[in-house]
């Protein structure tokens, strides 16, 4: 213990190489637009079920009726109000997608930083496990497990996490490896700072920008995977309203009542693009700062 304090007295602490602030990413118009879109959709999706003009589960007219003053977007395959269902249909995605993305990015980052910092066997074993997961197309794993255990939302979130986590781990490990040669990390090691502290205090803040890129990207992928699962019938189950499910339910009526399909599609598109904008904007800012350095 005493040696630690002695060493820290002798070695001048080097300055951090990079500013850690995520705020510089806010200067990107794309990031601002993406965040606004996601926040807007989330708020809308949470309050919309209370504002819906009709009961989303009860028929209001004949099936596939065109838009009318009664039902602004017409009715669906069972004569239910499309507008009310679109307004209620994002509630699952609104918590499942951010939850999947956040957990996947956190776990992926933790695994990546531990693997990168400790190296050797730890690195080999952790990253090889990630490779095995990557070797399995996400939709297959999800389909296989959902067919066994049934489409419970917590299981779906777990599966999306397993699908997205290995990719995050690879990217963040790549971003962390060069940091290990930085002076401030070498300094921390020399003065005997525990690995846990180096990882959380030195490495983590310096990969925060790539982490935000990953978060945006993985959020848009979670929405894609979750709505695809609903679409093929192994996600949210009827009679619940869900955008992916609505596309499947009303697909046959595309020729006569396209709004029943296009309205939920528009919502999925806006949601996925929100995440993609954050990822793209952040990546561009990072590339620009690295170009200047």
């Amino acid at each position: 213990m005493t040696t630690t304090t002695d060493a820290s007295l002798e070695l001048p602490r080097p300055r951090k190489a990079r500013a850690t602030g995520l705020w510089r990413l806010w200067s990107s118009a794309q990031v601002r637009l993406g965040v606004t879109m996601l926040v807007g959709i989330t708020i809308l999706v949470i309050i919309a079920p209370f504002l819906a003009p009709h009961d989303m589960a009860a028929p209001v007219g004949r099936p596939y009726a065109p838009p009318s003053p009664e039902a602004w977007l017409g009715t669906d395959n069972l004569g239910r109000d499309v507008l009310s269902r679109v307004m209620s249909g994002g509630i699952y995605l609104a918590w499942m997608a951010p939850a999947s993305a956040l957990i996947a990015v956190s776990l992926g980052a933790a695994i990546a930083l531990i693997a990168a910092y400790y190296g050797g066997w730890t690195d080999l074993i952790l990253m090889r496990c990630m490779d095995v997961l990557l070797a399995f197309p996400g939709i297959l794993l999800t389909l296989l497990c959902v067919s066994i255990f049934g489409p419970a939302p917590p299981l779906l979130v777990t599966l999306v996490v397993l699908t997205l986590m290995p990719g995050v781990a690879r990217v963040i490990r790549g971003a962390a490896l060069p940091l290990l040669r930085q002076e401030y990390v070498l300094w921390a090691k020399t003065v005997g700072t525990p690995g846990r502290v180096i990882i959380t205090r030195e490495l983590l803040p310096n990969v925060s920008s790539p982490l935000l890129v990953e978060l945006g990207l993985r959020l848009s992928w979670s929405v894609a995977i979750l709505s695809s699962m609903s679409f093929i019938g192994y996600g949210i189950q009827p009679p619940a309203a869900d955008w992916g499910l609505m596309v499947a339910e009303n697909g046959n009526g595309l020729g006569i009542q396209p709004y029943a399909v296009l309205a939920p599609i528009l919502m999925i598109v806006l949601y996925t693009i929100g995440g993609a904008l954050i990822a793209e904007g952040s990546a561009r800012i990072i590339a620009r700062t690295e170009g200047e350095a």
Binding site: I225, S227, S228, F231, I265, V269, T272
Partner: peptide
């Protein structure tokens, strides 16, 4: 960017 983000079924 849009077509990369949007799921295939869309």
């Amino acid at each position: 960017m849009i077509f990369n983000a949007v799921p295939e079924f869309v």
